[in-house]
């Protein structure tokens, strides 16, 4: 197995994945409105918080878009169908907020509480 072919981490996967997804579409199909996801980078100052009252999954319908698009493996996990942010793994990139399809965006980016960031 060569290096370029090794299965990638979710982070590698999705940072690569989102780019081809967002940009060509925004460029080539102007007649479809709506902004493509911005090129996001990590922001250690903030952390994603899911507001259950606006989250479709918490409200009994199915959605897992935030987990699928999160570039960090394990930063958003699904338990019993509902997504949960693992605060110590969230890099604050905000991609989940960009793509949340709930009628009222369920993701808040809040200032990260002070304290040790990593478990290890």
């Amino acid at each position: 197995m060569n290096e370029s072919a090794r299965p990638l981490s979710r982070r590698e996967v999705l940072t690569r994945f989102l780019r081809p997804f967002g940009e060509p579409l925004a460029r080539t199909s102007r007649r479809l409105q709506g902004a493509a996801p911005k090129d996001r980078s990590e922001n250690p100052e903030q952390v994603a918080v899911i507001q259950g009252r606006y989250c479709l999954a918490y409200e009994g319908t199915f959605c897992s878009a935030c987990r699928e698009h999160c570039p960090v493996p394990g930063a958003i996990v699904i338990n019993d169908g509902t997504p949960q942010v693992q605060r110590d793994q969230c890099t604050g990139c905000g991609i989940c907020q960009e793509i949340c399809p709930a009628p009222k965006n369920a993701i808040l980016m809040l200032p990260r509480p002070k304290g040790p960031r990593h478990r290890e």
Binding site: N2, A5, L8, L14, G34, P37, C100, P101
Partner: peptide, 25 residues
């Protein structure tokens, strides 16, 4: 549209590795 902007090819990681594809390629 933001949540699912375009089509993709779902593939098994081992097949992708064998073909030499990286995710998102």
């Amino acid at each position: 549209r933001r949540s699912m902007p375009h089509a993709y090819i779902e593939m098994h990681p081992d097949d992708a590795a064998e073909e030499g594809f990286s995710n998102g390629e």
